[in-house]
Design a protein around this nucleic acid. Structure first.
Lengths: 222, 222
DNA sequence: CTCATGAAATTCGTATACGAAATACGAAAT
DNA sequence: ATTTCGTATTTCGTATACGAATTTCATGAG
């Protein structure tokens, strides 16, 4: 027998809906979030909306205006940089931990994700590519067996998706990304933990440069 | 004129009270948390309690029983290990980032914390020493200028405080800790970022061993 | 005596209600 | 015309109310 209907609470569903709207850019940075309006749109009462907003505030997806209510946090270049500094430390660790724990099944899964990402990239499906990117890294987090990494990075990907939203219009620039993903996973499959970790380190160093050059070639970058 | 009373919301105050009770061990692991009971004790309605519990659940301080309500999450050795794996990657990074940003004022603050920790340790004030430990590392997080690090580690310290609660009865074992803190901060003050980072790395490697040997000398450790 | 069954009591999730605080708007005074 | 003050309206935070689901306890059958 299986558990029936996960049927999450309205708070969780509201939280998910708001987070998604923020990350996809449906809610613009700086936009004010009115509880009544959200409650009406999602067909729930204000109570779950209030709880969800409290969680989003604790995670810096919305900020207090000091006055009344909250607004969507700005897409902060400084936050983006902070996340990549952290990723530079965490992702190689995740690779190191995950490599000796790879099972045949997870190797298959990883290859599938890489194949899917590569295919969607050639199909210019930017949104699908981003999802595959998230899936690839999340697989490694989970294989690491370190739930703190999984939790932390899931939050961070929420912030990253916001920044990436601006980048989605520049497909093709992710070509190199999936070559690197493939190389990383190959090294992991062969049990070369430290090699894979180094490749991942370089991958994370390269990533923000690609984003910066893709979005604002003239700017001084970050 | 100054701004008066920040006057946090009841949700925040309730969250803080519950988190504190969990971290200090006033609420034992596995203990069921009834909303009515908490609301009555804190003299608030169930509504802020409900919101606060939703946040604590998202942060794994309480877990769903699958049945009714939530209970305090067990103090998990696996979680403890996970946090130290993450700290091993993050703390040296924080030191690297913080070192070139040290101001004369922050150097003074750091020395004060080290002096206080050392003093309280000799006074066998275990709780004060733990607070100084948190203060020391938090200072570095903040000096790093990376708000992601600050946020992540503040959550992790919540979990760590729970494990440490068991260790507080073994003062004296922290003697080496404050020698290392002093050395780390000395290297930082001299601008030797990589040296300080290496010292921090070693500090984090040593820490869980001290805890394990202090609490359960017979056990196989973690 | 043990286990199953059902009703009563708890307790949670969510909706609604209410009071307080802030904003918006208009009128009056300079 | 601009600014200032007062009032009306909006909106949030919190309290209370209500329905659903689960637990508990008692009663009865095996």
């Amino acid at each position: 027998m299986e558990a029936i209907s996960p049927s999450k609470s309205l708070v969780d569903k509201t939280y998910g809906a708001l987070l998604d709207a923020i990350c996809t850019g449906e809610f613009r940075p700086g936009q004010r979030l009115g509880q009544d309006e959200i409650a009406e749109r999602l067909k729930v009462s204000r109570q779950p909306v209030n709880s969800a907003i409290a969680m989003l505030r604790a995670q810096r997806f919305v900020i207090d205006t000091g006055r009344r209510g909250v607004e969507v946090a700005p897409v902060d270049a400084k936050l983006f940089e902070s996340i990549y500094q952290v990723r530079g430390a965490i992702e190689p660790l995740a690779v190191e931990l995950a490599t000796p724990r790879l099972s045949p099944g997870s190797i298959t899964r990883g290859r599938e994700i890489v194949a899917r990402g590569t295919r969607l990239m050639h199909a210019n499906d930017a949104r699908g590519v981003l999802q595959a990117d998230i899936d690839f890294h999340t697989l490694i987090y989970e294989l690491s067996g370190n739930e703190i990494i999984t939790d932390m990075m899931q939050l961070n990907w929420g912030h990253l998706r916001r920044s990436m939203g601006e980048v989605l219009r520049f497909p093709g620039m992710t070509l190199q990304v999936w070559k690197e993903h493939k190389a990383i996973f190959k090294a992991m499959s062969e049990g070369s933990a430290s090699v894979a970790a180094d490749l991942m380190r370089q991958h994370i160093v390269n990533a923000p440069r690609r984003v910066a050059s893709g979005t604002a070639p003239a700017e001084s970058s970050l």
